[in-house]
């Protein structure tokens, strides 16, 4: 554990909590991609199956359970409790175009050809692109609520901090995981355009809206 890893995990946690609170407080999931949230629930489910097979630390177990629980709670709020506010007409990204290639890649490029390891690899690849339906929704509507942009910022910062964590671990522990690193770089790059808009607009008190 180093400071980048811890800060990354906390940023990830903050993102998840911000989204849950936004939906709960406003009683609305307008502007949120249910598809991205289903993908994240799938990511956590396939990655944290090792909760059942190996114990790493209390911290590790606690965070995994919280992430999974929050992911399903978010999906529940979007598709059940506040279904009437769900922006289905704009949430039209074809997720099969992500899940199928990512599934195929997980079979082909993995550390070990075993069910748990393939599912872990699948989750890493899928996480790197799971935000695309959300970004697609924002590009379609041309705007995002400020609280939604805070969510996205925390979520993007999380993986960026993990990149520093991996640099740290490579130098000080000789540890590296090429699959996680490559996917993490891809994931972070996908947020760059958004980071730019966040800094130039949201941080200056303006609403995030895209030119038509």
């Amino acid at each position: 554990m180093n400071i980048f890893r811890l800060a990354g995990d906390l940023s990830h946690l903050a993102a998840i909590i911000i989204l849950l609170l936004k939906i709960w407080k406003t009683r609305s999931c307008a502007g949120i991609s249910g598809k991205s949230q289903i993908l994240f629930a799938l990511v956590f489910t396939t990655r944290y199956l090792d909760l059942l097979t190996s114990f790493i630390s209390l911290y590790n177990t606690f965070m995994k359970v919280v992430y999974i629980g929050c992911a399903y709670a978010t999906v529940y709020l979007i598709y059940m409790k506040f279904k009437a506010t769900y922006d289905g007409n704009h949430d039209t990204f074809r997720v099969e175009f992500l899940v199928v290639p990512v599934g195929g890649l997980a079979f082909l490029v993995n550390h070990d050809f075993s069910p748990l390891e393939i599912l872990w690899t699948f989750s890493i690849y899928l996480e790197s692109v799971a935000i695309l339906p959300q970004l697609f929704l924002i590009s379609k509507t041309g705007e995002a609520e400020t609280i939604t942009t805070h969510y996205l910022f925390c979520l993007g910062v999380y993986r960026a901090l993990y990149l520093f964590n991996w640099i740290w671990r490579f130098y000080f522990e000789g540890f590296f995981d090429m699959i996680a690193i490559v996917a993490g770089v891809v994931q972070t790059i996908l947020y760059c355009d958004f980071f730019y808009l966040y800094v130039t607009k949201v941080l200056k008190g303006k609403k995030l809206s895209l030119p038509a």
């Binding site: 995990d9 090792d50 790493i56 590790n60 699959i179």
Partner: peptide, 10 residues
């Protein structure tokens, strides 16, 4: 190296 022996990250 012991590349990704156990996945200790989240």
């Amino acid at each position: 190296a012991d590349e990704a022996a156990a996945h200790d990250e989240l």
